[in-house]
Design a protein around this nucleic acid. Structure first.
Lengths: 244, 244
DNA sequence: GGATCGTCGATTGTCAACAATGTGTCACGA
DNA sequence: TCGTGACACATTGTTGACAATCGACGATCC
């Protein structure tokens, strides 16, 4: 089979620049997507032979793809024993959101003084997309669109290292929200929670924006924590035999 | 050859917990050390066959090790073309230090309210080690010790994600300072630059500490930028044929 | 002389077989 | 019944060979 047979046109140009040139790059994407979409849930084992069969590649490229996802924090492995999707803990939630508060504030500090009209227009546009998906009741899309709105701030900062850091956080966030969606369904981002964020972003008061970011994160950590506490199974040991 | 033959006892327990159990883990360490020490300078090609021979392993584990270093930002690769050590640019320096200012301030925010005596004692200890190596004129050690002093703040924060972020920044910083040392020699961290930092860390005024962090980073970016501008060759294209 | 095309070497990408390790199971004895 | 030891199985780690691709060099044609 030729590599080109696997090409998925412009469907998901969400992450970084995508080479698409090698099998490994392909698998990284597909596997990441499968994990983030909750297709392979947290704690589920990732057996190399099974995955190599599923993706129709040999174990070489697959292992390299796994290494990359390990480095991204989405996958955990124990030598000679096994590999599984990263699990969710309450401490992680606190860490993610506290760090995100710092990073997003920093990102806004970079963008704010520039009074960038292109940024504002794009922010408006992405927010409209988000609102539309919320109103349509499409939770899967809403989660992604919400992250896209926030992601714009990092992109606009022009700070590559900061974007990289956001990318790492984004993946874990998606892991949580996907689990949340899978458990409760129809409980994506709320309109009003985001309205105040956008309003502040378009305002003139930077301190108000900082406060709004902190508030937004507080709400996020609250929701996610409540969810996790209601699902103690998610941070348990991976069960042998759960099909991937 | 048995894996145990490669064991390097407690020589460099600098980075994370070291499994030592697999060849791959070993190579990641050795390769990272070779890069960070400047043994393989920025821009130099990393040919898989040459490296696999040098480290006496096959290309499989070596490639996986490379993947990990790529994810850490120390190595860059182009499919079907080549791999080389990451290069140094002035923008990178600005990004690293600006992000580090934010992260280190955040780390101190976590540590400060606790009035942790163990932290203060360890800070004193590591600082003494640093001073000793500076006075001894050992630049190589001084660079590492200086990073160790700062690293303690991240460790004491107890924030795993923050430590992870610091680890990524730390590697790049080491890359710069190693190149700096190699070029100029005998120009490691200065005593007086660090004295004010430590003084503030032991003081009671948190705002003063924040200002000191910002100052410290300003000095760092200034030195590093001046160095880079004096060595334009470091950000050039990798030359084919440079031995690794 | 300059541009273009093909060839060749170097390098990375991929694969399938084999080795090493850890974990659970099951028989056995106290 | 409970502990214990050996054994088999599942899984990852490692290897060497082969395929695909890229970049440079040189021949050829205009």
């Amino acid at each position: 089979m030729a590599i080109s047979d696997l090409s998925t046109p412009g469907a998901d140009a969400l992450f970084e620049r995508v080479p698409k040139a090698t099998l490994r790059a392909h698998i990284v994407e597909r596997l990441r997507l499968a994990i983030l979409a909750g297709d392979i849930p947290p704690g589920a084992p990732l057996v190399e032979t099974a995955l190599s069969e599923r993706f129709d590649v040999s174990r070489g490229p697959l292992r390299e793809a796994l290494r990359q996802l390990i480095e991204e924090g989405l996958v955990v492995t124990v030598p000679y024993t096994g590999t599984h999707v990263a699990e969710l803990s309450v401490e992680d939630v606190h860490e993610i959101y506290s760090l995100r508060t710092v990073l997003e504030t920093f990102a806004f500090e970079q963008v704010w003084p520039r009074r960038d009209d292109r940024f504002r227009a794009e922010l408006r546009r992405r927010n409209d997309v988000l609102i539309a998906s919320i109103d349509a009741g499409d939770d899967r899309a809403s989660i992604l669109n919400e992250l896209d709105v926030h992601g714009l701030v990092y992109e606009a900062s022009g700070h590559k290292l900061l974007q990289r850091a956001w990318h790492g956080l984004r993946g874990r966030l998606q892991l949580y929200w996907a689990a949340h969606h899978r458990a409760h369904g129809r409980r994506g981002p709320k309109r009003d929670s985001h309205d105040s964020y956008i309003e502040a972003a378009f305002g003139a008061d930077f301190d108000a924006m900082k406060a709004e970011i902190a508030d937004h994160m507080r709400r996020g950590v609250e929701t996610t924590e409540k969810f996790l506490r209601s699902m103690p199974g998610l941070s348990g040991k991976p069960k042998r035999g759960v099909k991937s």
